[in-house]
Design a protein around this nucleic acid. Sequence first.
DNA 1: GACGAATTGGGTAATTTGGGGA
DNA 2: TGTGTCCAAATTACCCAATTCG
Lengths: 67, 67
Amino acid sequence: MPVSNVVEPDSTGPTEQLLTPGEVAHIFGVDPKTVNRWSLTGKIPSLKTPGGQRRYRQSDVNALLNG
Amino acid sequence: MPVSNVVEPDSTGPTEQLLTPGEVAHIFGVDPKTVNRWSLTGKIPSLKTPGGQRRYRQSDVNALLNG
DNA sequence: GACGAATTGGGTAATTTGGGGA
DNA sequence: TGTGTCCAAATTACCCAATTCG
C-alpha cells in the first residue's frame, strides 16, 4: 500500500508534506543511507512511522537547503 | 511507479540532477579542489549537504561550459 | 623577456559518503 | 524500499610550490 498517507488529522501540527529518505536523498544528491545518517546525528529532525521508518518534513529539508 | 507522487512546487527544492565535485572536475578536466575553489569565488553556485559537502547543478555546469 | 597577481595542483589529516551484505 | 553496520573511497580545509595570464 502507498506510504503517502500523509494527511494528519491531528490538530497539533500543521499538515505538512512528509518526504521519504529516498526523496530527500534525491533532493540533496546523496544516497538514502546518508539521509538516515543525518537523522541519527541530529542534522535533520525526523518522524517515525509505526513501522519504524523515517519521514522528513518538507520545511526541515528546506531549512537545510537554505543554509 | 513512485511510492508517492510528491509534487515539489517549492522553489527551494532543486528538481534537478546534482553532480559531485569529482564529476564536475572530470567534465572540466581539472582537480576537484579547483572546482571547490570556483564555488568559493562565486564562479559556480553550489548546494551544501548537511555534512558540509558540495553538490553542483547540471544546468550551472552547462552554463559554464557554454558561456 | 621580465614582472606581479591570480590560478592550479601536490601533500596531509580529519570528516563525510557510498558500496556490499545482513 | 528502508534499516543498521563495517570498510573503502571521496571530499574538505589547510599550506605551499609551480604554472599561467596580462
